[in-house]
Structure formats: structure tokens, C-alpha cells
């Protein structure tokens, strides 16, 4: 993999690595936020520091600005992902008020985001450099390496809330996730990406869940496992789903940790 090795980046990596190492030595996790920004001077840095201290009074922040790459960075020692994520919201609000933000922000916390290596750090920096542009979203950086046994997951659900949630959570846990709003889109994406796991609702428009399961099992036998995630609780529905070849059945309201555990169990059983 070709990594842009320029001197500024190398130096940035060194700087950042130093700080994180300092925190690591104390045995605590370390959070990191990178944001592409316009010209930031010392005064701005100071304002930012005081603004953020307003929200996080006890947390030590190390702010720095990499002139060459135009990246503003904050290292939060001792902070896990949740607080780092929250801090990024605060930071974004500040930057938008000052109209300084120029692209997507990257948020990470080690070790939750993966192993702390030079490669992962450079990937993180690369990702934030790539983030320059129109979109202003906050992105979570995850570098778990591919989950064993799963190439990708396809989630099919017309309900946005649960679909987005499952996609987000699985992506955070390192899975690659495709989504589909209805049965025919699900079948298309299945044929295109051949995921090893499909999580589907039963009540899909156009092509319903049962037919989707049937088609997958019939035409692509052995390729995809199917977990049904639905709010239908009738035993008839369960029976029918299993008869058609579903591997598991989870009812809504559901707990995401239970779903993840079932996914792991399924993989270990099959793989």
C-alpha cells in the first residue's frame, strides 16, 4: 500500500505519536481528533482551548496545528471514544462559529480504534487529509483489520432508524456494511457485493423478506447466511423463515450487543 510519505506528515506522525505515547504509558486510553482547518494561529488555539475547557473542565488537552497539511489536532489523554466523540462535537461547534472548518473531522481513540502503530496513525492522518472538501461530517476512525470470516454484511430494512443504527454499529466494530431499503435493492446489492451475511427485515417493499431469503438460499447456496431482524413476532413467521433457510431470528426491539454476539456465533459455527 502506497502511503504518502512526505516530511511534514512524518513529522506530524512523530509529534502525535509522542503525545499519545505519553498518555499510554500511564495505562490510559488516548483520544484524538483531527480537523482540516484554515489558517489557525496561536490566538485561535488559545480561544479553542478555553472554549473546550468550558465543556470539559478536567480533561487535559493538547492542541496543535500542522501548518503544512492544514490540520488541527487535539489529543485527549485518558479519554475513551465516547468522550472523544463528544469533544469533537464541541470542537465542531467552535470551528463552525469561527468559520474555520474545511472538511470532515476524524475521531479516534486508542486502543478502541485499533492497535497504535505507525501505520494506523498514518492511515488516520491520510483519512483526515482526504476529508478536505464540501462535507462536514464527523467520521470515526476504525482500524481493526478485517473481521475473520466475514467479507461484508448487507442490511435490508425499510425503517431508517434501525437500518442506520445497525449499519453504524457494525461499521464501528469493523465490519463492512452495505444497506438496502427494499427487497429488490437488496437482491441487486447482494449480487454485486456477495456479502457473507445478510441481515434482513421480513416486511420489505417490492420483494419481501421471505422471497429474498428463498432466492439467496436457492440461487447462491452456501454463499450467504441470513439473519432475520424483524418486529414480526408470530411463531408462523419464525417457522417460515427458518424453513426457507434463515440461520437466526432476532425480534425488535432488539439489543445491538445481542445481535453482534449472534453474528459472531454464526461465523464461528460456519467458518
Amino acid at each position: 500500500m502506497a502511503v504518502l510519505v512526505q516530511d511534514p506528515i512524518q513529522e506530524a506522525i512523530l509529534q502525535v505519536a509522542e503525545r499519545i505515547q505519553a498518555s499510554y504509558e500511564k495505562g490510559a486510553p488516548c483520544g484524538m481528533i483531527l480537523a482540516p482547518c484554515a489558517a489557525v494561529n496561536q490566538k485561535v488555539l488559545e480561544n479553542m482551548q478555553s472554549y473546550m475547557s468550558g465543556f470539559e473542565p478536567d480533561i487535559p488537552l493538547h492542541c496543535f496545528y500542522l501548518d503544512q497539511s492544514g490540520l488541527l489536532g487535539i489529543v485527549l489523554s485518558g479519554q475513551k471514544l465516547i468522550n472523544t466523540h463528544y469533544a469533537s462535537l464541541v470542537l465542531k461547534e467552535f470551528l463552525e462559529q469561527q468559520d474555520l472548518l474545511e472538511g470532515q473531522m476524524a475521531v479516534a481513540s486508542f486502543p478502541e480504534s485499533g492497535e497504535l502503530t505507525e501505520q494506523s496513525l498514518s492511515q488516520l492522518l491520510y483519512m483526515s487529509l482526504q476529508g478536505k472538501g464540501e462535507s462536514r461530517d464527523i467520521h470515526l476512525f476504525m482500524n481493526h483489520g478485517l473481521q475473520q470470516g466475514i467479507t461484508s454484511i448487507l442490511i435490508a430494512d425499510p425503517d431508517e432508524v434501525s437500518r442506520e443504527f445497525v449499519k453504524l454499529r457494525l461499521e464501528i466494530n469493523g465490519y463492512k456494511v452495505e444497506e438496502a431499503k427494499d427487497g429488490s435493492e437488496a437482491l441487486e446489492k447482494f449480487e454485486k457485493t456477495m456479502p457473507s451475511l445478510v441481515i434482513t427485515e421480513l416486511n420489505l417493499p417490492i420483494l419481501d423478506g421471505y422471497q429474498l431469503i428463498d432466492k439467496i438460499k436457492r440461487d447462491y447456496a452456501g454463499e450467504g447466511q441470513v439473519i432475520v431482524l424483524t418486529d414480526k413476532q408470530l411463531p408462523k413467521s419464525m417457522d417460515r423463515a427458518f424453513e426457507l433457510g434463515a440461520s437466526d431470528y432476532v425480534t425488535k426491539p432488539f439489543s445491538i450487543s445481542e445481535l453482534e454476539w449472534r453474528i459472531k456465533k454464526l461465523i464461528s459455527r460456519v467458518g
Partner: peptide, 8 residues
């Protein structure tokens, strides 16, 4: 309505 439509 969402929840009601799948109720047994």
C-alpha cells in the same frame, strides 16, 4: 403505526 402493523 410501525409497531402496530407487526403486532400479532
Amino acid at each position: 403505526m410501525n409497531k402496530l402493523s407487526s403486532s400479532s
